[in-house]
Design a protein around this nucleic acid. Structure first.
Length: 248
DNA sequence: AAAGTCAGCAACCGCTCCACT
DNA sequence: GAGTGGAGCGGTTGCTGACTT
């Protein structure tokens, strides 16, 4: 018997979204919010399944999506978090503002995985001269969404670095010298950090353990600050001393 | 210039999780 | 506690376009 499909697929459109469909979805959500995804396409007048609408909104149309190439520190953070969390793309995405799980997953499979496999010495590079559809769109529509942070500007992030080896190649990154902040991991640092942690719903339901496995470690008040310190210090060190503190 | 190859990425599919009854 | 439905997640597919031959 099995479960009924998520939506009635008869007569529903599949495949790439047209600009008109995008506009309908955007204006509907701006007006009413997404509410019930299943009911949304009908109410908005879209011949799409709710799941498709949700995916399109989450991965592409959301105003806070950051377009553009991954910066060096974002790449490092993805690699580090992947070591800790495994293929939990949504958990990884929660640590990267404006990046989606789908995007991170794509980057991982197309680039970072190879970069890691190449044994650190011969670092794989994406095809340098190839300009993708996405990049072309960014070139032409760079300012189309005023809410979208620009790739060159990472000043909205507060990053930390304790690793000089990372900063050796920071000329490849969009980080400027003044964006790199050396951490003062005193009590006020942790106090601030955990006040951010407790106030962030995106990370509050994740389970992480201090050994790097994705189990048995839940953020929240049932764990001591010392436990969290140990975990975050480990992540921090694995990241080569680069952390996006705004997401903690 | 044309054909073949391959990388990038948007989107789909199937499954699990979770809240609600 | 069991059943149901919606949301979310991760794996995978397939199209597009840049690059190579």
């Amino acid at each position: 018997m099995g479960r009924a499909p998520c939506c009635d697929k008869v007569g529903l459109k599949k495949g790439p979204w047209s600009p008109e469909e995008d506009q309908i979805l955007i204006s509907y959500i701006e007006k009413h919010g997404h509410g019930n995804w299943r009911a949304l396409p009908k109410q908005a007048g879209l011949l799409r399944c709710g799941k498709s609408c949700r995916l399109r909104w989450i991965n592409y149309l959301r105003p806070d999506i950051k377009r553009g190439n991954f910066t060096k520190d974002e790449e490092e953070l993805v690699i580090s978090l992947h070591q800790s969390l495994g293929n939990r793309w949504s958990a990884i995405a929660a640590q990267l503002p404006g990046r989606t799980d789908n995007e991170i997953k794509n980057i991982w499979h197309t680039y970072l995985k190879k970069k890691l496999a190449s044994d650190n010495s011969t670092v794989a590079q994406p095809r340098s001269t190839k300009k993708t559809k996405k990049q072309k769109a960014e070139t032409t529509n760079f300012d189309s969404n005023p809410n979208t942070p620009q790739p060159e500007s990472i000043s909205s992030l507060s990053s930390l670095s304790t690793d000089q080896s990372w900063s050796d190649d920071k000329e490849e990154s969009f980080l400027s010298e003044e964006d790199v902040i050396l951490p003062q991991m005193d009590e006020s640092f942790w106090t601030e950090m955990f006040s951010m942690d407790n106030g962030t719903s995106s990370s509050s339901d994740q389970t992480l353990d201090s050994t790097g496995d994705a189990s048995g470690y839940t953020f929240g008040d049932q764990y001591s600050i010392e436990d969290d310190k140990e975990f975050w210090l480990k992540v921090f060190c694995e990241a080569g001393g680069v952390m996006d503190m705004s997401q903690l």
